[in-house]
Computed example of a mutant assay.
Amino acid sequence: MTFYRDIASYLLAFVLAFNLAPAMAQEPLRLRLGVGPSCVEEVMCLMKARPDLTPGQGKDYLLDITPFRAGDIRFQAYVAGQIDGGTTSFSTLMLSALKGIRTTTVAAISKESNRTYSTSFLSLTEGGINSAKDLKGKVIGIPGLRNTFELIARAELSKIGLNPDRDVRLVVVPTQVMEQALRDQKISIGAFVQPFYANAIAGGGVKVLFNSINTLGLAEEFNIFFQPEFLKSHDRVIRSFLSDFVASTKYYIANTGKARKALLASKMVEIPASVFIGMANLEPVPDARPSPADWEKMQDWMFKLGFMDQKVDINSMIDTSYLPN
């Protein structure tokens, strides 16, 4: 009798497991992603604001976005396992690789472009600075050291024969007060990102001295990266997420005004509507495919200017196989 009771128990357990398996398999995976402040990666935030654009959200994955005001804090959270991945520039990813931080880039979000916007250094229209050659003995404001802003400044100076360590003074100025420092002539030129660039241009009396894409001769990307092990464990979910991301990117490109209104309504954007709606931003990458050629060009600049003491294997850091065909 005991034998038959055991058989019945095994059969019942099997039936229950079989019936529960589909429900367990359909439980959406929480994707913990670190992004920049105030939705600088607009498409990522659009996916959160307009889940109707993302059929996989809620079914295959839950999008958990955490904004970080600084890239170093974002990577501290990544190393600590508090986020599964995030967004950042490819220069940051390469520098992180030299520190032993392993990442896999699966998609490009946006890139510097003269058609839309490129990180720019502004001077006063009447300040007597008309080209980089006029910067000898002057003060250059940048938001931080050993980052892309410093790299752009050093590259531009080196191209015209000025020594960045002797001929100018590089000073750190917080992004939020860069415009005031320029107008008060505490600095001769300053590095501007959006929306501070748009605010400064709207205020008048300033001009672009040089920008990232013209100085470096490449379009720096902002990318989506994940923990390599996380990708391997969640292949199907990542493919669903990236399929939705590409679809949302195409919607954003075709309906930028509507997309930005949705972002404002979601309260995820801290930029005034009067500035945000018409603001030029980095150019979205329609197919989300990174450009290894531009990664290589950036690495050459970083190596040449001493930001890297050795090069990294770029191809091993990029995996586009998760993107839709």
Rank of each mutant, 00 (worst) to 15 (best):
D235N: 13
I253R: 05
E42C: 09
P22K: 14
E42D: 09
M268C: 06
V106T: 01
L124V: 02
Q26K: 15
M24K: 14
K232I: 00
T249Q: 08
G36K: 04
A132Q: 08
S266C: 11
G190T: 03
S120K: 06
D167C: 12
T88Q: 03
P51K: 12
V172E: 15
E112A: 09
M308W: 07
G141Y: 02
A8T: 00
P286M: 12
E283K: 13
K207L: 11
L218C: 03
N315V: 06
Q194A: 14
R32S: 12
L209G: 01
K111V: 00
S123W: 04
G205Y: 03
N325T: 00
L135G: 03
E296F: 09
E179L: 15
P195M: 10
D60I: 03
L53S: 02
N163K: 15
G81L: 12
S91Y: 12
Q57K: 08
L16V: 11
T119V: 05
T88P: 00
L264E: 07
V79P: 02
V79G: 05
S321F: 11
P51V: 08
F121C: 01
N325E: 12
D72F: 14
V269F: 07
G306Y: 04
G144S: 15
K258S: 09
S123D: 08
K138S: 02
K258V: 03
A259H: 05
E296S: 13
S248M: 09
T105L: 13
D6P: 00
L151E: 07
D184K: 15
R169M: 14
L323D: 05
L33A: 03
F210G: 01
Q180H: 13
P290E: 06
L242N: 04
N255I: 11
W301R: 02
M302A: 13
P28I: 06
Q299V: 00
A80S: 10
A153W: 07
A254N: 14
